[in-house]
Nucleic acid binder design. Structure first.
Lengths: 164, 164
DNA sequence: TCCACGGGCTAATGGTCATTAGCCTGACTA
DNA sequence: TAGTCAGGCTAATGACCATTAGCCCGTGGA
């Protein structure tokens, strides 16, 4: 809490004039992250009906977010077990909702005869996990730029689902 | 430490008759995990020279390990920042070595004209991240069995590298 | 037989934090 | 102009936990 306070220019205890507890703060950060991801997803798939293009854009949004918000992603993935059950349920339910978005995209591609995978769930897990990974290893000053990684991972998602 | 002690039938402080510190214990667990992964990898690629088959078997070993050793993988991914610098260096160097194994497999496939990817590094990161993900969501009692996941992810790896 | 020591136990010790208590100041507002 | 209150601060308080102190018992070689 002292560190968080320092980051906004006040002392640790003064934070309690703004948040009820560290737990609440963590929950707010994590649900905020998930809501942002969901909003970006909806925006990404809004402008086309083509299954492959929708999946590509959703993956790109997913990857771009994780490359640009490594800290949020890190906290989101690492601190789930730090949440009390009620908060954890909230976050996990948002996460499940997000996963379902991808699974639905894969299903749509399958029923349209455009994708070829055995398990839509497995494919959506795989694509989501790619993004999580990006948050771990991505460095803004590395040789792989955010644009390159985003583009390449969009391609990979299409390969994973066997898009024609 | 009390929990760890309980897991082996003794009290927390008694553990100090066997390990020097919690830090050492964690480092031993993490380096052990990485060494095991490296050994499994070498075993997996030892019996064939075909680039695609080697990558498939390496991926399968990777995924199977992460499905079967979720806790080790969890600790290995989450607690790196808990290590003091010297231990962290050791673990990260083993990890880099493991990643290089996959990168070399991808390179071999590319130079043999069998794989088609822009960045071998990106492809190897992607494949490795799939395994990490498995450790997070895999449940032995789920509808997706270890065999199915392993097989499917092996296929996905080949798709990711654009194997012909 | 005895004694050294491996290995277990309980009871400190000490450090790190989140959180609370209690205080103070400065800005509106009646 | 006095009162209220938002919002800072320092100094407790109290958990929690790794680690250490100091003790005890059983066993196996001398």
């Amino acid at each position: 809490m002292a560190d968080i306070g320092a980051a906004v220019g006040i002392r640790g205890p003064s934070l309690y004039k703004h948040v009820a507890s560290k737990q609440d703060l963590l929950a707010a950060v994590m649900t905020g992250t998930m809501r942002e991801l969901l909003a970006l997803h909806r925006e990404a798939v809004a402008t086309t009906d083509d299954p492959a293009e929708r999946l590509r854009r959703a993956t790109e949004a997913h990857v771009r977010y994780h490359a640009g918000h490594r800290l949020e992603a890190f906290v989101g993935n690492r601190e789930i077990r730090s949440l009390v059950p009620s908060n954890r349920r909230r976050v996990l339910s948002l996460r499940a909702e997000y996963e379902k978005c991808f699974r639905d995209l894969v299903h749509a591609g399958i029923t349209a005869g455009r994708f070829h995978v055995m398990s839509a769930r497995l494919a959506s897990y795989a694509i989501l996990d790619l993004g999580m990974g990006v948050a771990v290893w991505f460095r803004a000053d590395g040789e792989l730029t955010e644009d390159i990684v985003t583009w390449q991972y969009g391609e990979m998602a299409l390969r994973i689902v066997g898009a024609t």
